[in-house]
Design a protein around this nucleic acid. Structure first.
Lengths: 343, 343
DNA sequence: CTGAAAGCGCTAACAT
DNA sequence: ATGTTAGCGCTTTCAG
């Protein structure tokens, strides 16, 4: 394979008998340069097939027009949507995205953050992994002066920019709705308590129970990850103990999927025998049978707000502010949790 | 926000009374340097919190350890899985990924490719958008000597590296199976003919029909995109014309979802009234009702092979070869297309 | 084993 | 309006 030597500023410069500086300025529409000259240089640059070397430009300019993103998963509707929206905003503002995936692994996450800093990204948006407990790396990021926005999954530290959904309120809405329907025997397949979305969704659940004076049955509260197997296993445990509630509220949508699977396996009908509602929306919930009701997180807003705050911070490093943003959720009622099925 | 000045090689050098060169070599385990010295330098570098500036390193080293990826969508199970697998391989080989999304838009795709080249990625993996018709940019990439691997969605040009699924064979398997079941009235909601997966899946469909001497009913063959609305609209058209077949074969899984939605809307039962099978697998197909059968594309293999070929090309630019790889599919039979439902 | 010199391609500051 | 100088942080010769 023959590698054509890329044309550089100085190639254009010699050809046109200008200095590289003039070329550089012209190509960036610098007011120093006469419009006529700009036009000339532009056309020649084009003809020669010039493309700037961003590594060089960025090294020199000390900014990369690049944003690092760290997410726990990607083949997951929530993160997929988030990322797509982030892309939209980034594209509009002429930023590139360096996307990294932690696979819910704290060590990997740390490495990615380090690489991103080494790549001199202008800022970072992160949704932390479910097992991240050591927050030192975030301190490092701050020391290095790299703007950082936490999105959705947020560590317990002070003075950080966060954009999240109002998890507690959202969970409360769901359970309050359920109780008003008549449900009392309610289980919660919760997330780990260490992570905000685990903790706060649980709190919303607890708030609603408390409001209606329903005691929480501890054997119906589980703590676990965010995947299908967690939902499946938890359901099976209750089933085998013959200790099934009337309604299950799951911390994420994949966990609910696990429940669907388990219920089908043991021939229990949803919602007649066991009803369910989850936190988090996905297009396919419409296609389940019955269609799965949920607390909807507006992913577009989450992404847009995160980007907004990040860009603000990038462009305004001096008057940097820690903004904490919380977005409201709404209930989407479909085929589950719409009426009380006496058990 | 106070930005700590990042520590550089020369900081370490002055502190240790070495030259930057020695530091640079030591940190990269260069055989020139005495092991003892390496150890010393390493520990000091660590203590000082040194991280290499990748922009500088890459500029100087003329390689970035970075791979560009261009996909049409991301909130889509197929691409999500692909990307996750690509990440796994990249991570193992110490490459970073620059992910870009074309949103099925050819112009955006072109821009992304240009940016990737400007960023001096070491290679590119791309799945082209459904509307890409101008292939000049790919010629440019080749001229620039950037290794390029096309994955799954492939343009009609010569001498390129491709990794794909055996679409024609896969589609054939599905339809052959259906016909053996007894189906004769078979529709195909196909992709655009310009794109390989559109064309070849259609061909596989046609092959099977021909094998069994069943004429293709043109009013049952549609051409369109890869999304839900296409499936929905096409189904509705047939329904309104009272011209429904017994089985629909859709080019992708979202198209099938559109059919599910439409069928439910007009109260037609799947698979009793209208049966369906699609190309492409997604976890949620298990949760549909009935669970959707499909031609399975092994995403992990697709990703792994693409990366393998790309890395080979990167490390072996001189003896560069155009490899064309085709991976077999298998049929996953679930709740649809498993028995003939006389209409 | 170590380092001095040169350069990757670009841009900012300061002349002219 | 254009160019000179210097430098971003690193690596690759090549000389000692």
């Amino acid at each position: 394979m023959v590698r054509e030597k890329p044309v550089t500023l100085s190639d254009i410069a010699t050809r046109l008998n200008y200095s590289t500086v003039t070329i550089s300025k012209a190509l960036r529409d610098h007011p120093d340069i006469a419009p006529k000259t700009i036009k000339l240089i532009r056309s020649i640059a084009n003809e020669m097939g010039y493309t700037p070397n961003l590594m060089a430009r960025n090294l020199s300019a000390r900014r990369s027009n690049t944003i690092g993103v760290v997410v726990p998963k990607i083949a997951h509707f929530f993160f997929g949507s988030i990322i797509e929206s982030i892309y939209d905003v980034a594209f509009k503002h002429n930023y590139e995205i360096i996307l990294t995936v932690s696979q819910e692994n704290a060590e990997r996450e740390r490495k990615h953050i380090q690489t991103l800093m080494a790549m001199k990204v202008d800022g970072i948006i992160i949704s932390i992994s479910q097992e991240t407990k050591d927050y030192e790396i975030f301190e490092t990021v701050r020391k290095r002066g790299v703007p950082l926005v936490f999105m959705d999954r947020i560590p317990k530290i002070k003075n950080i920019c966060t954009v999240r959904v109002n998890d507690r309120e959202g969970a409360f809405k769901a359970i309050d709705h359920a109780i008003n329907l008549g449900y009392k025997k309610i289980a919660h397949f919760a997330g780990y308590n260490e992570i905000n979305i685990g903790k706060e969704r649980y709190q919303g659940f607890a708030d609603a129970m408390k409001k209606h004076n329903i005691p929480i049955n501890k054997s119906w509260v589980f703590r676990g990850g965010f995947g299908e197997s967690y939902g499946y296993d938890s359901f099976m445990k209750l089933y085998k103990e013959n200790n099934l509630p009337d309604l299950i509220f799951t911390v994420t949508y994949p966990v609910a999927l696990g429940v669907y699977m388990a219920a089908r396996e043991v021939n229990l009908r949803i919602p007649e025998d066991i009803d369910i509602i989850c936190f988090g929306n996905a297009k396919v919930q419409n296609f389940l049978s019955p269609p799965l009701s949920c607390v909807n997180q507006p992913t577009e807003q989450l992404a847009a707000k995160s980007m907004e705050i990040l860009l603000e911070n990038i462009n305004n490093m001096d008057e940097f502010e820690c903004k904490e943003m919380s977005i409201s959720t709404d209930l989407i009622l479909r085929g589950t949790c719409i009426k009380f099925n006496k058990s």
